[in-house]
Nucleic acid binder design. Structure first.
Length: 466
DNA sequence: ATCGGCTCGCGCAA
DNA sequence: TGCGCGAAGCCGAT
């Protein structure tokens, strides 16, 4: 049995062998199909591709397909993504890795493979159903080995083995493994330099990349966010220097810029979670603040990834627990004093100015504060005709307007708010909610300065990111 | 300001 | 089988 250098590399718990076999000896390169992890450092998938290339004595090339068919994505998301590609290009060059950038309606790993003739293909992971299907189908069609690397979590998702019931069940399992997995990667460069075959097509990462691409352009780019690893790292440094001290309290004050606002960068893979965690862990800030942030970044974020990976109904009410489905069903005919259609919600036309402010923050800036996201989703449950409709409307709005939409965090957050996912029952039993945890305007407003949050929105829709 | 009761079920000790 | 306790809550009593 194997103890060749290659077997040792595929033995890593981050790695799944999706197509087994020996690398094609006639293959010219190791091909890294970059999808989720759109960065050239703190990227275990890229690191592995380089290790394999060096072990085989072959060059390494990364292929990125800018596909217009990504479900639910619009110009806001594509602009942010495209902002990040120049950083990918320059970062890969520093590691002597080639870059092939193409665009089209869908991924075309097959054609790129035919042109480049890889010995082996490496890719990253994304637990959402469509990207997972792309990886599976592409692996079936390859004639060379395909390995995927779980690059965007700290503890590999497979280590948890099954769907976790709550934060309290995943937390000790994650903490036990952090010492092993929370380590900076060794950023090696490829030993063999990539030489592009004559005539191989690749686009320039630049401002015109989106021109003519058939995407949904009805949502404008987010005015306060520029994508990319460089910008993400700048924001990380600023957060650690200016906001980490005091984070444990400030994060629950939506009227203050107290959070990291890094979720878009993590969503597009412009930053890796290890780099963020290590920067915070080693920071000169009170322990309680560092712990509060790491709880969000690691325990809560990876619980969300676990949910999407192991529950194929992650975007419907039916994916929630029986106790919650029962209590919501018993209350589905309750009278609802306020009822809104999706259009009214989208336009922030409710009687509740706190809710409207949260909605406007999301639509206008592409990012809603985490604390009001809970309130926002729970009120949709209260103001629509059924929990199923509430779930669908919340996901549609979240995925359309949030820069970090279409992300496990969003699905888990909405399932928590509407379906009690990862939560517990709370009495007393109430209309519509049953024993799903309730939130009220009055109580929520007493915890932070909601007037200031609302006012900031009214005076300047970009208040939060100026 | 703080406290208790509301309510459910996992995971572990036994 | 019993028991402790848990993502951010709410409300009324003290």
């Amino acid at each position: 049995m194997g103890s060749s250098p290659l077997d040792r590399l595929s033995d890593d718990p981050r790695v799944s062998v999706r197509r087994a076999g020996a690398p094609d000896p006639d293959g010219r390169v190791v091909l890294y199909w970059m999808q989720r992890a759109q960065r050239a450092s703190d990227n275990p998938a890229l690191d592995l591709a380089i290790e394999v290339g060096n072990a085989l004595g072959k060059a390494v090339v990364a292929y990125f397909g800018l596909v217009s068919a990504f479900p639910g994505a619009n110009l806001r998301h594509y602009q942010f993504l495209a902002d990040g590609l120049p950083d990918v290009a320059s970062g890969l060059a520093r590691r002597r890795v080639g870059f092939v950038l193409r665009r089209g309606t869908r991924h075309d790993l097959e054609r790129v493979s035919e042109e480049i003739r890889p010995a082996l293909v490496v890719t990253d992971e994304n637990p959402l159903r469509e990207p997972e299907r792309w990886r599976r189908q592409a692996s079936e069609r390859q004639r060379v080995p395909v390995w995927s690397v779980d690059a965007d979590v700290i503890v590999p998702t497979a280590q948890l083995e099954r769907e976790q019931y709550a934060a309290r069940t995943i937390r000790p399992r994650i903490h036990r493994q952090l010492e092993w997995f929370l380590q900076a990667s060794r950023e090696r460069a490829a030993r063999v330099r990539w030489r592009s075959p004559a005539g191989l097509m690749s686009l320039e990462a630049g401002p015109h990349l989106l021109d003519g691409l058939p995407i949904d352009r009805t949502v404008p780019p987010a005015p306060g966010f520029r994508g990319g690893s460089t910008e993400g790292r700048r924001r990380l440094r600023r957060f650690v220097a200016e906001r980490l001290a005091g984070y444990a309290d400030a994060r629950n004050h939506p009227e203050i810029d107290g959070t990291s606002e890094l979720s878009p960068y993590l969503h597009f893979g412009h930053l890796g979670p290890r780099e963020v965690a290590l920067a915070v862990q080693d920071a000169d800030a009170p322990l309680a603040d560092r712990q509060a942030f790491l709880e969000q970044l690691i325990v809560r974020r990876e619980l969300a990834v676990n949910f999407v990976r192991y529950n194929d109904r992650y975007d419907e009410l039916a994916g929630c627990e029986p106790w919650a489905l029962d209590t919501l069903r018993r209350h589905h005919r309750d009278r609802r004093p306020y009822l809104y259609v999706p259009r009214q919600l989208e336009q922030a036309e409710t009687h509740d100015e706190l809710w409207n402010a949260a909605e406007r923050q999301m639509v206008g800036t592409g990012w809603m504060h985490g604390y009001v996201r809970m309130y926002w989703a729970k009120k949709i449950l209260e103001w629509t005709r059924s929990p199923e409709e509430a779930f669908a409307v919340a996901i549609e709005l979240n995925d359309r307007y949030e820069l970090d939409g279409r992300d496990p965090n969003g699905y888990a957050g909405i399932a928590w708010a509407i379906g009690g996912k990862h939560d517990r029952a709370w009495g007393p039993e109430r209309p519509v909610f049953g024993t799903v945890r309730y939130m009220s305007f009055g109580s929520t407003s007493r915890k932070f300065d909601s007037r200031r949050y609302i006012g900031g929105q009214v005076l300047n829709p970009h208040f939060f990111h100026v």
